[in-house]
Amino acid sequence: MATTQPDGTQTPLIDASVHIFFGSNKDLRQNFMREPFRSRGFPDYEMDWYGAPGGEYAKGTEGSDGQYPGSDPDVVAKHLFTDRGVDMAILHPMTRGIMPDRHLGTAIAAAHNEMMVTRWLEHPEHGERFRGTIRVNPDDLTGALREIDKYRDHPRVVQIGVPLQSRELYGKPQYWPLWEAVIDANLPVAVHIEVGSGIALPPTPSGNTRTYEQYAGFMALNYLYHLMNMIAEGVFERMPALKFVWADGAADLLTPFIWRMDCFGRPHLEQTPWAPKMPSDYLPGHVFFVQGMLDGPGDADFAGEWHSFTGKDDMVMYGSSYPHWQLNEPSVPSAFSTEQRDKLLWRNAAELYGLQIGAEVRL
């Protein structure tokens, strides 16, 4: 398969952000959860403060019998592989955020992992073109390590997933054993906005936003707090093999933010002797993004130049956010070079996740 560009060329396409769900809460509870957690209370996927105007999910993404959008592998495979020309899809199960009971949170994550592996990664027809994200609960180190150990050697598992809406910044030492385990498993970490209303902190330093538009515009920026903290705490200096994927867009904000960090960091490096480099020096090879619908200047004359600043050429990967309403298209600004286009659409993801797909642009 391939995606066709406006100039008629065809290129490989890796979708680095495909969200999958259970068909229903009954499906989750009865088929993948066990007591004492099966009968516990936890939020529905739809239980959040900010419903998207017009609906959260794109039309036609429900299962053949009305199951939840993004829950039927056959429907998803048709939409991605047949209709959109995707070669391979990186699956990211949507769980329920941080639960008050860490054991319940881990049980929910474990159920989603089992569902993804058995229904999707081992699907007899489509499994070869799916790759998976194992969800772990960062509030339960023992449970998280157990899930990593269980699936680390599965040939179609390519990353570990944690929620963007954490209760602590991910540079703090309590998370270091988790990141060390991820490195030992030779997997990157993907950080994504969660569904369902858990007990995470508000999405802005000033509290909760009023509308969905404000929430969607701001929420992804929380990666900046995590990233700043990880650099300041010396996480990437301490763990040179650690890779983080900020999977909910906002890559366009990296450049002004890191410029500001470098400006303030230059005269104050002595305050963080465990992180002796300039902040921007910790980006290459450590920091990656999935392209969001609203990222960057759009199809402007300077789009290619802006994309090249701060090394973003090598950091950003295309992701559709299927089955969510925006369904990001694999469109590339006309000002992008051929190399920039290929890195965005498939090459960066292929290198990060170790995927073998066609290496030549097809005409």
Rank of each mutant, 00 (worst) to 15 (best):
P297G: 14
I231Q: 06
M315D: 00
D7K: 04
Q291L: 15
A220M: 11
G249W: 03
K277H: 07
D248T: 03
T209Y: 07
V191D: 03
V136M: 03
N25P: 13
I183T: 00
T272W: 11
E237H: 12
Y215H: 13
L242D: 05
R84C: 07
D83P: 03
G132P: 00
N222Q: 15
D342R: 13
G304F: 04
V245R: 02
T9L: 15
D101N: 03
E147C: 06
D299N: 15
G105Q: 04
Q271V: 10
A216R: 09
L355N: 05
Q30A: 15
L164F: 01
E305T: 14
L201G: 01
G51N: 12
Q159H: 03
P6G: 09
G132T: 02
S197Q: 08
E270A: 15
M315W: 02
P6L: 11
Y212D: 13
Q174I: 14
N31F: 09
Q271P: 05
S321I: 12
P203C: 13
N222V: 03
E237V: 06
T106D: 03
G54S: 03
I108Q: 07
V189L: 03
A107S: 10
L269H: 12
D83R: 01
F264Q: 14
P256F: 09
A2E: 11
M230Y: 01
G354M: 02
T106R: 09
A251H: 11
E270G: 11
Y322V: 00
R40S: 15
A303D: 01
Q67T: 04
E339L: 08
K343I: 10
Y215R: 04
I231N: 03
I108P: 05
D7Q: 09
R210A: 14
S321Q: 14
T82K: 10
F302V: 15
M293N: 12
K172Y: 11
T338F: 09
A359T: 13
Y215M: 11
T133P: 00
Q340N: 07
V235Q: 05
M115K: 15
Y50N: 00
F257L: 14
P256Y: 00
I148V: 08
L187Y: 04
D184G: 02
V191L: 05
D314H: 14
L294F: 14
L327R: 11
D262A: 08
A232M: 08
E270V: 11
I98S: 06
Y322R: 10
Q340E: 11
N222P: 00
D87V: 04
D139H: 07
A359C: 08
V287Y: 04
M47Y: 12
D27T: 14
G85C: 05
L227T: 01
G292N: 04
M88D: 11
A109M: 09
W325A: 13
V117Q: 11
P202N: 06
F22G: 02
Q214R: 02
E125Y: 08
M315R: 01
M88Y: 12
H307W: 13
A232T: 02
L201Y: 09
N229T: 09
L242E: 10
Q174F: 06
R146P: 08
R266N: 14
